[in-house]
């Protein structure tokens, strides 16, 4: 399988001299064709800049970007068969929905009747038939999002870029759109590259994802790999509600003197165990209760399934686990 997008030690620096900021710092990245790829990270971690490097709105300070094998260093955005769903959708306010969707076909020289027919087809695909005559200002946030999606997809791009596409939607709509986007991607077979700061969104939608931190990729892998075997403390912290254990605690639990992570769902309460402490808080989650225990300076959470006995706050307890679930991290 060819790589849809390939970064070879790509850097993007803003400004010069001592005040310069490296938004993207020597990133190597390969996005497989047909995959649903997520770029996950806190704001300012370089994920959006990477997306803009693919679309062409930023140019690398050094390194090479290839799209389907072709070096794009001299190719402006309008000649890249890559389309973007912008964070604020960026619909053209002076055009109606149909003209918005047909815009890409219009500037490529397609006749009016044909491009309008295609636009209607695409609007039907995103479940907005009969909306062609409205202006973007008359649509709800969710509808605008669908128009932006249709406007990008009508061009049959080889890669679709989505910049926090669900960020402006409320929770219920967001969950529905997650399923829809995933289904759409599978149906069309187009490579989707998706930027988000929401780890749940990234884990549930992507085939593979890159976690960004300070302009660098902290880890690339499938959701399961990233969730279960975070490579660094940052990834463990950012990706899930995992317990991050300092070297001393890891050692006390029989591991090497390194940072480690331990999932709360992989632990159980016991009378005695390798790790004991005082219960500080209980949080009822429905199917389970999250018990937080403090040992030394470290807080560790355990999940107790419903029906099991619960300790009282202030009492001492211990945590037991299967040693294979203690994940020792490669880097700090």
């Amino acid at each position: 399988m060819t790589a849809a997008v390939e970064f070879q030690s790509v850097s993007r620096q803003f400004g010069t001299g001592p005040g310069a900021v490296r938004a993207v710092d020597a990133v190597d990245l390969t996005i497989a064709e047909g995959s649903f790829f997520a770029m996950l990270g806190p704001s300012g971690s370089g994920k959006t800049t990477c997306l803009r490097l693919i679309s062409g709105f930023e140019q690398p300070s050094s390194g090479t970007i290839r799209i389907f094998g072709q070096d794009v260093s001299t190719i402006p955005p309008n000649r890249r068969n890559v389309n973007t769903v912008f964070q604020d959708y960026a619909l053209f306010p002076h055009m109606n929905v149909r003209d918005n969707v047909a815009y890409g076909l219009r500037v490529k020289g397609m006749g009016r009747a044909q491009r309008h027919a295609k636009a209607e087809e695409m609007l039907a695909l995103v479940q907005l038939p009969d909306y062609g005559d409205r202006k973007p200002g008359q649509l709800s946030g969710g509808q605008r999002q669908r128009v932006a999606l249709a406007r990008a997809l009508v061009n049959e791009p080889r890669v679709l870029l989505l910049d926090e596409p669900l960020g402006a939607l409320d929770l219920k709509l967001r969950e529905a759109m997650q399923d829809e986007l995933k289904a759409l991607q599978q149906r069309l077979g187009i490579t989707f590259v998706f930027v988000t700061h929401d780890q749940h969104e990234a884990l549930s939608m992507a085939d593979s994802l890159a976690v960004f931190n300070q302009g660098r990729i902290a880890q690339i892998g499938t959701p399961a790999e990233i969730y279960d075997r975070p490579r660094t403390r940052f990834v463990a912290d950012f990706v899930g509600s995992s317990n991050v254990l300092p070297p001393a605690v890891t050692q006390a639990m029989g591991g090497p003197a390194r940072w480690a992570s331990l999932r709360p769902e992989h632990t159980r309460l016991a009378a005695t165990g390798p790790l004991s402490g005082t219960v500080t808080a209980l949080r009822y989650l429905g199917a389970a209760t999250r018990v937080v225990m403090k040992t030394g300076d470290t807080e560790i959470a355990a999940l107790v399934p419903a029906g099991h006995p619960l300790p009282e706050p202030g009492h001492s307890t211990a945590i037991a686990f299967d040693p294979k679930d203690l994940h020792v991290m490669e880097d700090e």
Binding site: Q70, V72, R79, N81
Partner: peptide, 17 residues
């Protein structure tokens, strides 16, 4: 499938680039 890079069409595209 469509090409990943679209062809250059005339002077306007060259100036844009």
């Amino acid at each position: 499938t469509a090409p990943a890079i679209l062809p250059e069409r005339g002077l306007a595209d060259r100036l844009t680039a």
